[in-house]
Amino acid sequence: MVQNQTFPIDVILNHRYQIKARLSSKTGRKTYLAQDQGTQIQIILKCLSPDWFAHWRIDI
């Protein structure tokens, strides 16, 4: 698991997803535009920090 990591442009994650651009960087989450190397389809990749979930409140 990679925590609080900022990925450089053009890095390939999991031998499949190539980072094309960082779209957003906020506390506990980062959003990237990536390209699936198998299908050549562009996707949105959202990386969430485990600490980010601690701020959620779930009412049951």
Rank of each mutant, 00 (worst) to 15 (best):
K20R: 12
T31C: 13
C47G: 08
H55D: 13
Q40N: 15
R29I: 07
A34W: 03
Y32P: 02
V2T: 13
P50N: 07
D10V: 00
I12A: 04
Q5P: 06
S49T: 08
S49Y: 03
W52H: 10
V2G: 01
A54M: 11
A54D: 03
T31S: 13
Y32E: 07
W56D: 01
S49D: 11
Q40R: 14
C47A: 13
I58M: 00
L48D: 05
I60C: 04
D36G: 14
Y32Q: 06
R16A: 07
H55T: 15
T31N: 01
N4R: 01
I41K: 11
C47H: 14
W52Q: 09
L48C: 12
F7Y: 11
A54K: 04
L23H: 15
L23A: 09
I19R: 02
S25H: 11
P50D: 11
L33P: 09
L13F: 09
T39F: 02
L33M: 13
H55Q: 14
D36V: 10
Q37H: 07
T6I: 09
L13I: 10
Q35E: 03
D10S: 09
I9E: 10
V2K: 00
Q5T: 15
Q5A: 15
M1I: 01
R29P: 07
I19L: 02
V2N: 01
Q35C: 15
Q3Y: 10
W56P: 01
V2A: 00
R16M: 10
L45R: 03
I12T: 04
R57S: 04
L33R: 11
W56C: 02
Q3N: 02
P8D: 02
V2C: 02
Y17R: 08
T31K: 02
L13P: 07
Q42I: 12
I58Q: 00
T27K: 08
D10Y: 02
I19Y: 05
T31F: 14
L13K: 05
S24E: 12
H15A: 09
K30V: 08
W52R: 10
D10F: 10
S25A: 14
H15Y: 06
G38A: 05
Q42W: 06
D51G: 14
I12V: 15
W56L: 01
F53G: 06
W52L: 07
P50H: 04
T39K: 04
W52C: 04
M1L: 11
S49I: 08
